[in-house]
Design a protein around this nucleic acid. Structure first.
Lengths: 224, 224
DNA sequence: GTTTAGGAGACTGTATACAAGATCTGACAT
DNA sequence: ATGTCAGATCTTGTATACAGTCTCCTAAAC
């Protein structure tokens, strides 16, 4: 069978492997610290070691995998502290993203924001939980893209995926309340109110941090 | 000849190729948009295509290289706008880094700050220009590491290298004045004054932006 | 029982091979 | 002169091969 995607739109095995490994890590199917043996991954995914190796480098650069030369790769470990630290970075970065998005209101990518909100509303109501998590990341990323700052978007993507990972690991789900805050952030962006947009984005991340903290401090033993 | 580095400290060819390609891009030896043919790079560096390919993925994740499936890799292009945009991100991120570093003052990595400052003073006085640029990046990164936030440091590294690239491309050198600001930032961090540290870091980046803007607006034609 | 040497097996790092798509060249048709 | 089509060439994507190192187990020495 030949492939049907042409030219630059072609998805290479490497891309698919990268996406699949990232998905498995985010979904918790690959546990923190778990050893990643190239041979076995390659066999499991039905490819050779080469695409797997390239994927491992990419995921290592994104911080999901730790590589030690001549020893091998493992899924990264996230201590509770490291989890909490990420929220500080997010507040700074996402605050900026919201501000810039408000400044640039009406750009083409602002439409995408509304789309994601609508999709999410539907997914929340029908209780498709995993999809909701993806849409959450998609919304935050869309804010980054609406900011019209190419490096900001580039850098936010792995940051937000890492945030999603943290939440999936701690089982701290926030539910519809979080989407209310998204809607409120969207309104501020649409209104072009920079200060308000930044404030709401920061408050939203701060709320997420609180729910992360209560989730880690009580139900589950910290994993260290 | 066998290698002398043992265990995890071993430097693989991939690591060396990555470092060398990054260096060539930062130094301008590889021009923006330049085509990167795996065969030729491999031959030029005396290795096989495999380490080169893995390097390309890493540098693409860092934003220095653009990869199009089945077409190939090119050195990324930086428009003047994209260059300017990075400063916004830097102000947010480095402001946070300085604040956290001040909060954590006295940590082991704070000593490193002073070391870099001393090395830089020497390098500035003897006019070793390329080394000064590296030390500038090293100082900013050291602030990030002194913040004691693992993701912050991880994410700042490519961001600062990108900043160094931008400056090397525009030939906007700031000289000793910049190091005065570094010293001043260091003092605020040492004093544990969070607000002042953040303010000085932001002001420092803002000053860098101004010097970038004057450099691009006048002497050289923008490369778009 | 503990320690150490040795060797088998497992795994990574690197090189090479091959298939398929992308690009270029030049001839031919209009 | 312009456009288009076929073939040759270049380049990437993927698989396979092999060498060197690391790990772990076993057995011998103390």
């Amino acid at each position: 069978m030949t492939d049907f995607t042409l030219g630059a739109a072609h998805r290479t095995l490497r891309d698919e492997v990268t996406a699949e490994l990232r998905r498995r890590i985010l979904a918790g199917e690959l546990a923190q610290g778990e050893r990643l043996v190239e041979d076995r991954l390659a066999a499991a995914l039905g490819v050779s070691r080469n695409p797997v190796r390239e994927s491992i480098r990419v995921l290592a650069a994104e911080g999901f995998i730790q590589v030690v030369p001549r020893i091998g790769a493992t899924v990264a470990r996230l201590s509770a502290e490291e989890g909490e630290e990420l929220f500080d970075v997010r507040m700074a970065v996402e605050g900026l993203a919201a501000r810039l998005a408000a400044r640039k209101r009406g750009s083409a990518s602002a439409i995408r924001l509304r789309q994601v909100l609508d999709q999410a509303k539907e997914a929340v109501e029908s209780g498709r939980l995993e999809e909701v998590a993806d849409l959450n990341t998609a919304f935050h990323l869309a804010v980054g893209e609406a900011a019209g700052n190419s490096y900001l978007a580039l850098m936010m993507k792995p940051m937000l995926q890492r945030a999603q990972w943290i939440f999936s690991q701690t089982a701290a789900v926030r539910g519809p309340h979080s989407w209310q805050e998204h809607l409120s952030l969207w309104e501020a962006i649409e209104a072009g109110d920079e200060d308000e947009a930044q404030a709401r984005a920061v408050a939203h991340v701060a709320a997420a941090r609180r729910s992360f903290l209560t989730a880690t401090r009580e139900p589950k033993p910290a994993n260290d």
